[in-house]
């Protein structure tokens, strides 16, 4: 770009001065970073996306933290939350994290069948997590503890619902890759997509640590 504009400039000027004569020797740029590592920048970019996503969750956590005691004479966390169910949910998400890790190890060994198997297991754990969460939400709304009941419940549904929405999109992404993978094989693009989804999936597990600690456990403990 600079070289082009430079030549155009000298043509218009038509008076070769010292700067113009120096122009043809355009500065040489040395790429100090390694070549052929194109997924590198994608991974960093995706990481920065995850960091910005955690800011969304930080704001939702802060909102929940501020409103978590405002029951409006309604039910408190100790009345509502079923901790054994949450423990089951947490373990499902944790299992899905390690099965995704195993799937990535099979990708390294280029074994299509086992990769798809472990991705499928991951998806089933994810669906189990979502199923329990939807059951919990349904149960709460049936009991009259829906998001419209109190500020505490509004903030609760916003925070936990946003996490559940992320898991839903993670599963959609997972299923998409389970179709793309057999179709195109272990091409670099697919491996890059799998790495990104892996980061996304593990990141959701990290957010869930905050949710079960800050919302469920501390809610029951301090209610």
């Amino acid at each position: 770009m600079t070289a082009h504009s430079g030549t155009a400039f000298t043509e218009i000027e038509a008076t070769p001065n010292a700067e113009a004569t120096a122009e043809p020797e355009a500065p040489v740029f040395y790429v100090t970073e390694e070549h052929g590592h194109a997924e590198g920048s994608t991974m960093l970019g995706f990481w920065i996306y995850l960091m910005s996503d955690s800011l969304i969750f930080a704001v939702l956590f802060a909102t929940y933290g501020v409103l978590s005691r405002n029951y409006a004479a309604g039910p408190s966390p100790a009345d509502l939350f079923d901790l054994p169910l949450i423990a089951l949910n947490t373990s499902l998400l944790l299992f899905s994290s390690i099965t995704y890790g195993v799937a990535m190890l099979e990708v390294e060994k280029r074994r299509m069948g086992l990769t798809l198997f472990w991705l499928g297991v991951t998806g089933l754990f994810g669906l189990g997590f979502l199923g329990i969460e939807l059951y919990e939400f349904h149960h709460l709304i049936e009991e009259g503890a829906g998001p419209d009941r109190s500020a505490f419940l509004s903030a609760f549904f916003a925070l936990v619902g946003t996490h559940g929405l992320h898991v839903t999109f993670g599963i959609v992404w997972l299923v998409t890759l389970m179709f793309q993978l057999p179709k195109h094989g272990f091409i670099p693009e697919n491996r890059r997509r799998l790495l990104c989804l892996g980061m996304f999936w593990h990141f959701l597990d990290v957010i869930w640590i905050g949710v079960f600690t800050f919302v469920y456990l501390m809610g029951v403990l301090l209610a």
Partner: peptide
């Protein structure tokens, strides 16, 4: 990561989840 890494992480995470509950 290796399988050992995932296993160590999984065991640690399970313990660190179980104790707060």
């Amino acid at each position: 990561g290796s399988f050992k890494d995932y296993l160590i992480g999984f065991v640690l995470a399970a313990v660190l989840t179980a104790i707060p509950f």
